[in-house]
Amino acid sequence: MLELKHIYKTFNPGTVNAKVALNDLNLTLRDGDFVTVIGGNGAGKSTMLNAVAGTFLVDSGTISIDGKDITRLPEHRRAAYLGRVFQDPMMGTAPTMQIEENLALAARRGQRRGLKWGITRLERMDYRELLKSLDLGLEDRMTSKVGLLSGGQRQALTLLMAALKRPKLLLLDEHTAALDPKTAAKVLELSDQIVAETGLTTMMVTHNMKDAIAHGNRLIMMDAGRVVLDIAGEEKKKLTVPQLLELFGKASGNDEADDKMLLS
């Protein structure tokens, strides 16, 4: 479904700050895959997600979704295929707009926005039910500004918005990293629940190895802008953190795994 072929991306090319972020990256996702992505700082995890989302255009290589080449498509046009949740809870919602307005914006992802009302009465009823499922009491605050919500509430709402229009691919970019442990666990649980209910193909970047093992059906590890490890199915289920560290050491050619990996 998602296919990345020979992706290269260098930031600040030709300067002393040149950084090769993606270096012959290849990855193919199957329909319904829930892939967790791990790797050290600067390994290219977020860069990969942003390349798929179209935050920047890649230097070379092709990105396709369901056989459609989206390599040169601008960010707002790719949005039709993608649901995204960011690391920063501030990034995924419009703070000065109401909860229901945010949902209504997400419900029109990939559609032409014309002079019809921005939100209908029928939608409001749907959103109430949807928000009820979060169990955060947001269904009674539908006309509150999103800026008044906590980080965890915002991430939960962003998740709902990302999945609302049934994207082809859900991109979760360390979306629990900025939350306190309890809230993070809750948002993660919600992510699992949404993916299970909808069967969305999902990529989730995480710094937490335990989470990477516990969630999804497939795990990839990145290093220096490419995929160095790809484990799926039964093999992934049996994985432990020490094993993962050892595998990482081998795959990346380091005897010792990057200290930054030892966050779990």
């Binding site: 601008p74 960010e75 707002h76 993608l82 419009a94 992802r109 918005m161």
Partner: peptide, 12 residues
């Protein structure tokens, strides 16, 4: 309100 979010929701 939020340009990043807007693009992610398909707004040009």
């Amino acid at each position: 309100s939020n340009r990043n979010m807007s693009r992610a929701q398909g707004i040009n």
